[in-house]
C-alpha cells in the first residue's frame, strides 16, 4: 500500500474543501481498503467521511431519504425500507456478508468498483485501471462480465446488488461537490464504459454523495432475486429487481425491471418495460419482452450463458409477481 495522508472530514462541505487531485473519500472501506491493499487504488489523501452525520433514514413526504453514510445493515433493517421497499431490502441483504454490510455505506455500495479479475490485479493490463493498457478479459476470463452495453475497451460489470434495486426504484442520488449541489437520477449515476472505462460514474472530481432519495415505491408487487453458484456471500451471476402492477383487466399498468451483473451499470430493462406496459401479463408476453431486451446483448464465448439466464430470470420473476 502506498503511503497516504489521512484526515477526517467535519462536514460534507469540509470534505469537499479538503479535496485535491489524488484525494479519495473513505466510507466503510470495504471496497476502498481492499483496492488500496491490492495497489489498485493509490490515494495520496484519504478524507474519512464515514462519521459525517449522513447516517439518517427519514421520510420526506411520500419519499424516503437515506443518508449516504447509512450502513447497509441499517438500511435493510429499517422498518420503512422493509415494508415499502422490499426489493431494496432484499437486494441489500443478498449482498456480501453480515460483517461487510455492517461496515459498508450506501454511497460506498453505489461506488463499488468491478470485481473483474484483471482490474483487481495490478500485474495485468486493464483499461479501467490503466487506460490504454488493453482488456485481456475479452479474450480471457470474462465468465462473469458484461453482455450488455460493453465496449471494445471494457467488459466489466458493476457488482452491486443494492444499486440494481435503486435503479429500478428511480432513486435520486444527491451530490455535493466543488461545483455545488446536484441530483442525479438513477440509473444515470453509472455510465457505460465506451472508450473511457476508467470512469465508472458521471461524478466529477470532488463530488461527494450525501444521500439517496427514494420516490414513493412503484405500485404492485416487487422483489429482488440473485443467482449465484454459492448460496450466500458471492457476487451475482445475474440478478434482477422487478416490480409489476397488473390491473383487474389483466393489463400491465406498471413494470420496472433492472438487471445486475450484466453490464457496466445496473441495467434498466427499458425496452422490456415499454413492451410490457399496456399489454397482457402473460408468460408469452414476459418472454417476448425479455428477448427484446436481450436482443441488444453482445455476449462473449464464456458469458453467453447470461442471456438464457437473464431471460429465464425475467420471465420467472414476472410470473411470480403477476397476480
Amino acid at each position: 500500500m502506498k503511503r497516504f495522508e489521512y484526515a477526517r472530514a467535519g462536514s460534507p462541505s469540509d470534505a469537499v474543501r479538503r479535496f485535491r487531485p489524488g484525494t479519495m473519500y473513505l466510507g466503510g472501506g470495504t471496497n476502498l481498503v481492499d483496492l488500496m491493499r491490492l495497489g489498485v487504488a493509490e490515494p495520496d489523501l484519504l478524507v474519512d467521511v464515514s462519521r459525517l452525520p449522513l447516517d439518517v433514514i427519514e421520510p420526506v413526504g411520500d419519499r424516503l431519504r437515506v443518508g449516504a453514510a447509512v450502513r447497509n445493515t441499517d438500511l435493510a433493517a429499517d422498518p420503512l425500507v422493509r415494508t415499502r421497499y422490499a426489493m431494496l431490502a432484499r437486494a441489500v441483504l443478498d449482498g456480501a456478508s453480515g460483517q461487510v454490510r455492517n461496515m459498508a455505506t450506501v454511497a460506498g455500495n453505489l461506488l463499488q468498483r468491478t470485481r473483474c479479475a484483471y482490474f483487481q490485479d495490478v500485474s495485468r493490463p486493464c483499461n479501467k485501471r490503466r487506460p490504454g493498457s488493453g482488456c485481456p478479459a475479452i479474450e480471457g476470463d470474462h465468465g462473469n462480465l458484461a453482455v450488455l452495453g460493453a465496449s471494445d475497451a471494457c467488459v466489466a460489470t458493476h457488482p452491486s446488488d443494492m444499486a440494481v434495486a435503486l435503479a429500478a426504484l428511480d432513486a435520486e442520488v444527491h451530490v455535493t461537490g466543488p461545483g455545488g449541489d446536484r441530483i442525479i437520477p438513477m440509473p444515470g449515476l453509472h455510465r457505460l464504459p465506451g472508450d473511457e472505462p476508467e470512469r465508472d460514474t458521471v461524478l466529477e472530481p470532488g463530488d461527494l454523495i450525501t444521500a439517496v432519495e427514494l420516490p414513493a415505491p412503484p405500485p404492485g408487487a416487487s422483489t429482488y432475486r440473485k443467482v449465484r453458484e454459492r448460496a450466500s456471500f458471492a457476487f451475482a451471476l445475474v440478478s434482477i429487481a422487478a416490480s409489476l402492477d397488473v390491473g383487474s383487466d389483466g393489463v400491465v399498468s406498471g413494470c420496472r425491471i433492472a438487471l445486475g451483473s450484466v453490464a457496466h451499470v445496473p441495467w434498466r430493462a427499458e425496452r422490456a418495460e415499454r413492451l410490457l406496459i399496456g399489454g397482457p401479463a402473460t408468460g408469452a408476453a414476459f418472454l417476448e419482452a425479455a428477448e427484446a431486451e436481450l436482443d441488444q446483448a453482445r455476449p462473449l464465448p464464456r458469458n453467453a450463458y447470461k442471456l438464457p439466464l437473464a431471460r429465464n430470470l425475467i420471465v420467472a420473476t414476472l410470473e411470480e409477481l403477476a397476480p
Partner: peptide, 16 residues
C-alpha cells in the same frame, strides 16, 4: 492463475 482470492475461488459457505 486467475481468481486468486476467496471472493472468486468459492469454497462452500455455511448456507451451502
Amino acid at each position: 492463475f486467475l481468481r486468486r482470492d476467496l471472493a472468486q475461488y468459492h469454497v462452500p459457505a455455511c448456507a451451502d
